[in-house]
């Protein structure tokens, strides 16, 4: 066959080979169908293990907290607030106390935190109504709840 007919053919073949080479280099070895479904299981297999380690666990759980803070754990024992995780108010315990900086635990003492449960919304058929509630616009405005109420025992503070 004549040369001017073959030449574009070689260009086309080279172009396809280049694409295949780029695909080979750029697509990770573990990319493909990992289960039985092309629709739902087509992915890079290594990503599953990446997610198993990402991010680092931030909320350690109350059982970890009372290992050192047994005094606070005891105060909570007979309290209705025992169902609330320490870290809900004290913040996530990641890196505490290894960083030797207890100040990384920022305690939320705001009214808003208590009002999450104890603002009376008047929803009588909701379990919200089973909790003691106040009207935040009338009940000791501009005062922190923890001035009179002990957040651990949920009782009045004796010295308040």
């Amino acid at each position: 066959m004549k040369n001017h007919v073959l030449r574009p053919l070689w260009v086309a073949i080279a172009f396809v080979a280049l694409i295949l080479l780029a695909r080979y280099v750029m697509v990770p070895r573990d990319f493909g169908v990992q289960g039985d479904s092309f629709t739902f299981n087509f992915h890079r297999a290594g990503n599953v293990d990446e997610w198993k380690n990402m991010p680092a666990v931030a909320y350690l759980g109350g059982e970890t907290c009372v290992e050192c803070h047994d005094e606070q754990g005891a105060a909570l024992e007979d309290s209705p607030h025992v169902i609330i995780q320490c870290e809900n108010c004290h913040g996530p315990g990641r890196d505490h106390p290894e960083t030797e900086n207890p100040a990384t635990m920022t305690i939320d003492r705001s009214r808003g935190l208590c009002l999450r449960c104890h603002a009376d919304l008047g929803y009588e058929n909701s379990s919200r109504a089973d909790l003691p509630g106040i009207n935040p616009e009338e009940h000791n405005i501009d005062t922190q709840c923890v001035q009179c109420h002990n957040p651990h025992t949920a009782e009045f503070k004796e010295d308040a």
Partner: peptide
């Protein structure tokens, strides 16, 4: 009861 502690924990975690 709509306390939203789940949302707070999720966002920080």
């Amino acid at each position: 009861v709509g306390c939203g502690f789940c949302v707070k924990a999720c966002k920080k975690e």
